[in-house]
Write a protein that binds this DNA or RNA. Structure first.
Length: 536
RNA sequence: GGGCUUGUAGCUCAAUUGGAUAGAGCAGCGGACUACGAAUCCGAAGAUUGGGGGUUCGAAUCCCCCCAAGCCUACCA
């Protein structure tokens, strides 16, 4: 249990009502705050400030960590952490090391996060990078907060776009043989297809080879590209699932049987339809006898559930928004627990080059790949950039600006703080100023009494709550914002005070303080999949 | 036409889910390196939260009506 939770419990126990606890925006207003008095004031029709005063007199505080309670503003109740407790916390933070901020919030619940899942028809583009950064960070955060989270990538290697891929490859192959050929309508003209055709030819695969051979080779080549890009981006997937395997398992047919038996499907125009709650019925089996995309997808999600996950999280692009309802309707027709499927929409990335928005069409061969972004702006910068935005906001990515700003980039601001601390610690080692703290250490920490130092420690104490919040909301973006605030406090402190000075006890206390800062920067960055360099 | 999402400082984005004076970073302006890294710091400026109404102690956040952008609206996946 973290401090916020303990305080929360103490307040609720002494008042016997539910209260919400928040962290005020300004640190002058205390460490925690509640607006419960307003709600009660309304019920009893009395002035909020009076209600707040009355509540304050009734709250039995855990005095080991709360120092001061005051009524502020129109009726807010503000709590301040006890100084002695602040020092004790610093010792605790140092002691917990890399585990600080982790928790058992998830209670070992199993979560599967599926993301990217790009069609194997071309290289990963920028949007996939955004999804990859968010999904990967989410998995890290969930695992850090006591869930058992796995990442999964679904490879859609069946269907029309794979036929088009095959035909596109064949076209390029024919060109190699000096024949004239044209990329089919809706096919893929990109350079990478030529490469695949060349490899096939080198391997002696003939054009009249079994169609599956060419398809499989094409898909595998592109999946290999995806894996390489993701690895370069620091993203690792636990599972790679192929649609063809889902089909082979017979899942889709079972879905059809089940839905038909329940009477939720009907035949019309030679096709089999699923009844939708809104009347906009969807095709399950096309009139040519093939499954529509929806069916194997339902089977795939049933497969996920069958693997024992308590929650499925899907990161979808906005082009899949309408698919959510179909999928959920299909799953509930199969008696699956739809409420255990959470879909997060990761909005588009609009690329801007030379002040103009550019399209992201794979068909026109006009797109910027994830690899290009990583090469041009770097892995850490682009990850930080993607993670700073909440998923549902449309993101403008100006590639020139990203390059230009890279020296002044927020990620460097944070990494610089960590490098600066490493540098200080290096110097301290050279001067042999190793800290010799007492058992608990907090006696010496009481030397840290400037405003800057206290603000830092208070910020550190809040870290577990930030992580928890990010975890509960499935929103990694709280982490980079916290980091920026922490780095600001550190740089601020650094400009005003010296860590290494003539005053040995103070020096030692401050060394421990900056160590704690570096440690938390490192943890937070690792939750984002970003490095914390000792030198830059 | 209908549905989903978005609209916050010149630009790119936050705002602990209905709370206090709406916060950062870039860009621009004015300052600070003769002690631990100036990739830094300090200061000033920049907002009618797209517009209008409503709900209430209290709204960027909830409801209604407009305006604008993106996506969906397939027997494609």
């Amino acid at each position: 249990m973290n401090i916020k939770q303990e305080l929360h419990k103490a307040i609720e126990e002494s008042l016997g009502i539910e209260v919400e606890l928040t962290e005020p925006k300004v640190s002058q207003l205390g460490d925690y705050s509640t607006s419960i008095a307003f709600t009660l004031a309304k019920q009893t029709a009395s002035p909020p400030r009076e209600v707040a005063q009355e509540l304050v007199s009734r709250i039995k505080l855990p005095f080991e960590f709360i120092d001061r309670v005051e009524v502020g503003g129109a009726g807010f109740i503000n709590f301040w952490l006890n100084k002695n407790f602040i020092y004790k916390s610093l010792a605790k933070i140092l002691k917990e090391g890399e585990r600080f901020g982790s928790s058992n919030l998830g209670n070992s619940k199993k979560i599967l996060v599926e993301f990217v899942s790009a069609n194997p028809t071309g290289p990963l583009v920028v949007v996939s990078g955004r999804a990859a950064a968010i999904g990967d960070s989410l998995v890290r955060i969930l695992n850090f907060t006591g869930y058992q989270a796995d990442s999964e990538y679904y490879i859609d290697n069946c269907g029309r776009q794979i036929k088009l891929l095959e035909e596109s490859i064949k076209t390029r192959y024919k060109e190699l043989d000096g024949e004239k050929a044209e990329i089919p309508e809706g096919g893929y003209p990109g350079e990478y297809i030529k490469e695949i055709a060349r490899e096939l030819k080198c391997r002696g695969v003939q054009l009249n080879a079994p169609t599956d051979d060419i398809r499989e080779y094409g898909v595998n080549s592109i999946v290999k590209l995806h894996k390489a890009s993701l690895e370069k981006f620091g993203v690792k997937f636990d599972n790679w699932v192929y649609e063809s395997d889902i089909r082979k398992s017979g899942g889709p047919q079972k879905v059809i049987d089940f839905i038909s038996k329940k009477g939720l499907a009907y035949k019309k125009d030679g096709a089999l339809w699923l009844r939708m709650p809104d009347g906009k019925d969807k095709v399950l089996i096309k009139s040519d006898g093939e499954f529509a995309y929806l069916v194997p997808d339902i089977a795939y999600h049933l497969d996920k559930f069958s693997r024992g996950y308590d929650l499925l999280i899907n990161l979808f692009g906005p082009d899949h928004i309408s698919h959510i309802d179909e999928l959920k309707a299909g799953l509930s027709a199969c008696d699956a627990q739809v409420d255990k499927l959470k879909v997060i929409i990761v909005q588009w990335v609009t690329l801007i080059k030379e002040g103009k928005k550019i399209g992201m069409s794979k068909r026109k061969g006009e797109f910027i790949t994830l690899d290009e972004v990583i090469d041009e702006v770097g892995k850490d910068v682009s990850r930080f950039f993607f993670l700073m935005r909440k998923c549902e906001s449309h993101l403008d990515f100006d590639i020139e600006l990203a390059k230009q700003e890279s020296k002044e980039n927020p990620v460097y601001y944070v990494q610089y703080a960590s490098a600066r601390i490493s540098s200080i610690l290096r110097l301290a080692r050279e001067q042999e100023m190793q800290p010799r703290m007492g058992k608990d250490g907090h006696d010496e920490f009481s030397l840290l009494k400037t405003q800057e130092e206290l603000l830092i420690i208070r910020k550190l104490i809040h870290f577990p709550e930030i992580v928890e919040h990010a975890s509960l909301e499935f929103s990694p973006h709280y982490i980079p914002f916290y980091l920026l605030e922490l780095a600001t406090l550190f740089h601020n402190f650094y400009e005003k005070h010296r860590v290494i000075s003539e005053d040995m006890p103070l020096t030692q206390a401050r060394i421990e303080l900056v160590k704690a800062v570096r440690q938390i920067i490192k943890i937070a960055l690792s939750l984002m999949g970003i490095s914390a360099p000792e030198k830059m």
